[in-house]
Simulated assay, not measured.
Amino acid sequence: MDSLFRPDVGTWTPVSPRLATARRGLGLVWIVVLWAAAAAGTGIPVATTDDWPWWPLAAVTVVAVAAGVALWVWAGRNRRSWGYLEAESDLLVTRGVMFRRLVAIPYGRMQFVDVSAGPVARRLGIATVTLHTASTETAADIPGVPADEARRLRNRLTEIGESHGAGL
């Protein structure tokens, strides 16, 4: 079944491991913020007293740690599921661990290629390459592409798209 989502037509390019680092970092920040809000909601006294119940804070902490472990595992598996392949007539993008998806975007159908990076992505040297077509079903994002590769991919796809679309 995996051959359905990764055809043997060439060499697949994986995304950068820094994508998992970015997702883990941002996710852990959110977990800490939510943990602090939940801990404050459990009624932590300003001064610790002997009769204060400790179990609500312990329950919130256990949930936060479990969420952190799940996030850590998910980010690595999700990063490994992404890949792209520059085939002869189209760009193939695959993703997904539980729900797999393979999108084939014909070069002649590309309208424009967008490269974006937020502050965390820029700090890690990665970007998201977005391919836009007239159909929303064939548009695709490729997150976690190293900045130099994103620039090369944008220029190459734009050049190929223009040459394939010239006959229209």
Rank of each mutant, 00 (worst) to 15 (best):
M1Q: 10
D2L: 12
L4G: 00
F5Y: 15
V9I: 13
G10Q: 08
T11S: 10
S16V: 09
L19Q: 01
L19E: 01
A20S: 07
T21W: 01
T21N: 02
A22I: 02
R24P: 01
R24Y: 06
G27D: 05
V29C: 08
V29I: 15
I31L: 08
V32C: 11
V33N: 04
L34T: 02
L34P: 00
A36P: 13
A36N: 15
A38T: 12
A39D: 09
T42C: 09
T42E: 04
G43S: 11
G43Y: 13
I44S: 12
P45A: 04
P45C: 09
P45S: 03
P45N: 06
P45I: 10
V46D: 14
V46E: 14
A47D: 10
T49E: 11
T49P: 03
D50K: 13
D50I: 12
D51L: 13
P53H: 10
W54T: 11
W54S: 09
P56S: 00
A58T: 13
A59C: 11
V60N: 04
V63L: 13
V65L: 14
A66L: 15
A67W: 13
G76L: 01
R79T: 06
Y84L: 01
L85C: 14
S89I: 00
D90N: 15
D90K: 11
L91S: 05
L91R: 06
V93I: 12
T94R: 07
T94H: 04
V97C: 00
V97Q: 02
R100W: 11
R101T: 15
L102C: 02
I105V: 15
I105L: 06
I105F: 05
P106F: 12
F112C: 05
F112W: 08
V113I: 15
V115C: 04
V115I: 15
P119M: 06
R122N: 05
L124I: 06
G125S: 05
V129W: 01
T130H: 11
L131K: 05
H132M: 13
S135N: 13
T136K: 13
T136M: 12
T138S: 14
T138V: 10
D141P: 03
I142P: 01
P143N: 09
P146F: 03
A147M: 04
E149N: 07
E149I: 01
E149F: 03
A150S: 03
R151H: 10
N155W: 14
R156P: 00
T158K: 14
T158W: 12
E159V: 14
E159N: 14
E159T: 15
I160Y: 14
I160M: 14
G161V: 11
G161T: 09
E162C: 04
H164C: 07
G165H: 08
A166N: 02
